[in-house]
């Protein structure tokens, strides 16, 4: 599938900022099933950009801006060619061993209720892939129709008990449950092409299956990512894979607005 992404993030500050440093994880990498055809990150004011990678192998752009800055827009535009792989990630750049993704972070903290629910969902089988699919389906059933929302800052255990988790929260729950049962799991941020359109970048999970490698699971949709998904960054949790992490020097508040279009281009290419 050929997918076009247009992703605009705009920050407005109530008072002019004297400096801005941002770390952008907005550029996808190639895998066997995901080929980046074109990709651009543009900024609407004078900044200095530096391309690098982070410890997880994600492509990172450092942004440095001098003030006074009252607003800044980050515009991402590109095209990606994907093929269906049943969620299996092949040929990704993996600088870290999967064992790392067993560690807990504040955001992926489990508790007894969550772990018990995961254990029940995993079932008695011995096939890890099957267990992970069951875990995915169980969460999709328990939390149907979750939205993509801004980060609430809560732990997996907390959002497990919350009335309305977001897709990001659900991914955290998925990761927490998998890790509690000794399956390495991680957070993925990216884009998703689907019927209803998207209002924000999407987040899902990947879990490790021996012999197969990393396999994606999107509990907010109850499926493994199909060819409508574009993987951008991975991390131990959502903040670790944040599309934009920023620091500003200046007073006042900030407001963020996002405009996102993920479109399928002609079925041929």
């Amino acid at each position: 599938m050929r997918i076009a992404v247009e992703h605009l993030t705009q920050y407005r500050f109530s008072e002019p900022q004297s400096r801005l440093v941002q770390m952008l994880r907005l550029t996808p990498g190639d895998t066997l099933d995901q080929t980046v055809l074109t990709w651009r990150v543009d900024i609407d004011c004078d900044v200095r950009l530096r391309d690098t990678v982070d410890g997880f192998g994600n492509k990172v752009t450092m942004l440095y801006a001098e003030g006074p800055i009252e607003d800044i827009a980050i515009i991402v535009a590109g095209q990606v060619l994907t093929t269906e792989s049943n969620g299996v990630v092949r040929g990704s750049h993996e600088p870290l061993p999967e064992g790392l993704f067993l560690r807990t972070t504040p955001r992926t903290l489990s508790n007894e209720a969550l772990t018990a629910f995961a254990r029940d969902s995993f079932g008695n089988g011995t096939d890890t892939l099957d267990q992970l699919h069951r875990w995915n389906a169980a969460l999709a059933k328990r939390f149907p129709g979750v939205p993509d929302l801004p980060d609430g800052g809560l732990s997996a255990a907390e959002v497990f008990a919350a009335p309305e988790p977001s897709s990001r929260d659900l991914a955290h729950i998925y990761i927490a449950g998998a890790r509690a049962l000794d399956v390495p799991a991680r957070y993925v941020s990216g884009y998703r092409q689907h019927e209803g359109g998207e209002s924000a970048p999407h987040g899902w999970a990947e879990a490790w299956v021996d012999g197969l490698g990393w396999v994606g699971f999107d509990p907010s949709a109850g499926i493994s990512p199909d060819e409508g998904y574009v993987r951008v960054a991975v991390g131990l949790d959502a903040p670790g894979a944040a599309t934009i992490a920023g620091s500003r020097l200046g007073q006042g508040k900030e407001e963020m607005a996002v405009d996102l279009h993920v479109d399928r281009l002609g079925s041929d290419a």
Binding site: V53, G55, F56, P95, P97, G99, L100, L102, R103
Partner: peptide, 28 residues
Amino acid sequence: ERRILKEGVVPAELILNNPQFRPEVAGI
């Protein structure tokens, strides 16, 4: 490279699961 883990001198999980091992600076 993590040769010492590959050769099993130190248990891998003791490193990888240790908060003092900082994946953020891996590869530097």
